[in-house]
């Protein structure tokens, strides 16, 4: 049976492989929610393909807006796939580290309570 260290390494490797394949293979079509937005705005038929120039109209009055450092998992057009790879690798490690860190912290708090 795999030990914890091997399991974690194997898990991260699998996650990174999925992410790397995603950068090159992911579909550029809008996702289910965006696609539905295009349908209700009359820019796309329910079962039809998405037109090249289709763009979701957004009414931003009374809405919040925020610019993320790596929008759409990319570092901009100039970096292309390399930027996409960096974004996915950073994101995958960050998701791991954040969840590991918080879960570890909560575990440690429980242990210290028992010891008191």
């Amino acid at each position: 049976m795999m030990d914890n260290k091997t399991f974690i390494i194997a898990g991260i490797v699998v996650a990174l492989l999925i992410g790397v394949v995603a950068v090159f293979m992911a579909s550029g079509d809008p996702d289910g929610l965006e696609s539905t937005a295009l349908v209700v705005q009359g820019q796309k038929e329910l079962t039809g393909s998405t037109p090249e120039d289709a763009e979701i109209e957004e009414d931003l009055t009374g809405k919040f807006s925020y610019s993320s450092p790596m929008p759409d998992y990319s570092l901009g057009d100039s970096l292309g796939s390399i930027g996409g790879l960096i974004a996915i690798i950073v994101g995958t490690f960050l998701a791991f580290v954040v969840v590991f860190g918080i879960a570890y912290g909560l575990k440690a708090r429980k242990t210290s309570k028992i010891n008191q």
């Binding site: 898990g11 990174l16 992410g19 994101g91 998701a95």
Partner: peptide
């Protein structure tokens, strides 16, 4: 702990794959 953290990495990667 290892399963929770590995699932986080895996779910992040899977969600990026459209």
């Amino acid at each position: 702990l290892p399963l929770v953290a590995v699932l986080a990495a895996g779910i992040f990667a899977l969600q990026s794959f459209n």
